[in-house]
């Protein structure tokens, strides 16, 4: 990691960055160095889930992750979610259900739900799945359509 070098796979593309300061958060790397503005900054304290991305297939909070501590990881952001079959199903379910109002929380919800369904498929009971989605906040309180989208995405899984 000398010289602040950081190697990532971002949405399937090998990415090498130089001069990344140790304190930089993955959130800022993704948004400002890579220009992937779909990942949102909400609270920056790990409370709201707006900055959720996948690291090696699992949902993480990019605001609480030092970018260089993710060295070598495969990162998936909302911009790359369609290349994952589960991610595309989730995205389509949000679209069909109209599960957004202002849209700011939507990328985080889609990534969090994608991570959960990739982990367990339909084996997680619906009430537990919804509890597990509780790490994402929607300030518009548009939860009923989000729940509908989550249910539909889960039902469609094999």
């Amino acid at each position: 990691m000398s010289g602040g070098r950081l190697r990532l796979s971002v949405n399937g593309r090998p990415t090498e960055l130089a001069d990344v300061p140790p304190e930089e958060r993955l959130l800022d790397t993704v948004r400002w160095r890579l220009g992937l503005k779909g990942t949102k900054e909400g609270c920056r304290t790990g409370e709201c889930g707006a900055c959720t991305v996948l690291r090696d297939g699992h949902a993480v909070l990019s605001c609480l992750l030092l970018a260089r501590d993710a060295d070598g990881a495969a990162i998936t952001t909302i911009e790359g979610v369609r290349s994952d079959p589960v991610g595309e199903r989730v995205r389509a379910a949000f679209e069909s259900a109209g599960a957004l109002q202002c849209g700011y929380c939507t990328p985080g919800f889609v990534m969090a739900l994608t991570g959960l369904l990739r982990e367990a498929g339909r084996s997680t009971p619906l009430d537990e799945l919804l509890e597990d989605l509780g790490g994402n906040l929607c300030r518009c309180t548009g939860y009923s359509t989000i729940v509908r989208a989550a249910r539909a995405a889960r039902e469609g899984l094999p």
């Binding site: 790990g46 690291r55 949902a59 993480v60 991570g115 959960l116 790490g135």
Partner: peptide
């Protein structure tokens, strides 16, 4: 503890 994403970290 926290949320699922937080617990992945």
């Amino acid at each position: 503890v926290g949320s699922v994403a937080l617990r992945h970290q």
